[in-house]
Design a protein around this nucleic acid. Structure first.
Lengths: 214, 214
DNA sequence: ATGCTTATTGAACATTCGTGCAAGAGCGCT
DNA sequence: AGCGCTCTTGCACGAATGTTCAATAAGCAT
């Protein structure tokens, strides 16, 4: 008497998509650009090669969905955490500290983003995801920085430019650190960002980031 | 009477290497990751497929040399330009403005760097180039920032951390702008960096970037 | 139980890739 | 003028790629 053992299991399409996207992210983190491979992703997800094209017309669309999930997930997480701050200044500190947390500050993650960035220029889908998620990020920072400037009674400042700069500082530190984690410690990175916010709150950028903007 | 027209010309090995490296950079700028291809590079250089492996044992070494040339060239250029400043503060302004200049602030360049970064984690050669050129960049900034802090009579500050932060701000703005040049103008980017240097010169970061460092 | 829907499989296809290698030819040297 | 070094060529090879598609079988409904 032999027990029936199914060769595979059918699961709900949405769950399967989720699994495929997760496998994609794992693949990119491990293999970098070489992870953009139907066969590698299929192996990582434990499914057959053909299943991927059943759910995604092309591998590019799978990557695009993975981009959306990762980027959206991080943005949502940062928003949720920073919302716990009692003041704008405190929210910014939470946002900064969480940006340096595990799952974000992680060298293999560079391999993932590098793939995404390399596709932005040639894919309209990727470009759309990039612009949408970046705007989301920046708006959060704009709100906190705007409130902080209001609380501090600062002269009018180009908040959008300030948010762009803080975001760039975060991104640049992340990039530098992922390329060589020995360059500086996470705590030092946080201190650099906190210093920037302190300077902002003290009105140090008012002279350069005056309002006209665009 | 038929004029002799050579099928190809022999040139000095060094010049040929130069041509191959230039073709590589052009390829990466145009095709991104797809430009990492012996055939595409050979076509861009106007030579046969086999010639590349004659000069470089593997395509990875060609990319590595291209990385070294591009990175070293930019570093040398920035050093040369910024050396023209009469004061450390002026040198920093020149460094910043030149960092936003053409040839650096250029969206296709993102495709080049993205390829380099994707290889740093898996190639010891690329890692070595990365660390060497990054240290070179930062040392220049450290010198100017150190002199500026001395001139301003600031309390002791972790200059290395400050240079890391300014470099990260530059990199982050570059990345953001290359992904979407409409986000902000070059002049705004320069203003953000100048504002950071102003704040540094005013001692705004002294409290966070205190000396112990590491 | 039986049938139906369709999620899932895996082989097949045409491309493209990097590298190896023997043949060819440019160009300096005698 | 012709020898010879080696730069240069381009075909050949195996491996890996994305996509297609007919066949299979899981799991729900009847």
């Amino acid at each position: 008497m032999v027990a029936r053992v199914p060769k595979f299991s059918r699961i709900q399409p949405e769950m399967r998509r989720e699994e495929l996207v997760d496998a994609t992210l794992r693949c990119l983190a491990q293999h970098g650009h070489a992870g953009v491979s139907v066969r590698k992703i299929a192996a990582a997800a434990g499914v057959s090669i053909g299943l991927i094209n059943h759910y995604y017309p092309s591998v590019d669309q799978l990557i695009s969905h993975a981009y959306e999930k990762l980027s959206g997930g991080i943005a949502a997480h940062l928003m949720e955490v920073s919302a716990g701050g009692a003041t704008p200044r405190e929210s910014l500190s939470l946002f900064i500290r969480e940006s340096f947390g595990p799952g974000i500050f992680d060298p293999p993650m560079l391999g993932v983003w590098v793939v995404f960035w390399s596709m932005v220029r040639h894919s309209a889908d990727m470009q759309a995801v990039q612009q949408r998620t970046y705007a989301q990020y920046r708006q959060v920072l704009e709100r906190y920085l705007g409130d902080l400037a209001g609380d501090s009674g600062l002269p009018p400042v180009n908040i959008q430019a300030a948010a762009t700069a803080l975001n760039a500082l975060l991104d640049g530190l992340w990039l530098t650190w992922c390329l060589n984690p020995k360059d500086f410690s996470v705590e030092e990175g946080i201190a650099m960002c906190e210093g920037w916010v302190d300077a902002f709150a003290a009105g140090a950028f008012a002279a350069r980031l005056n309002i006209p903007g665009r």
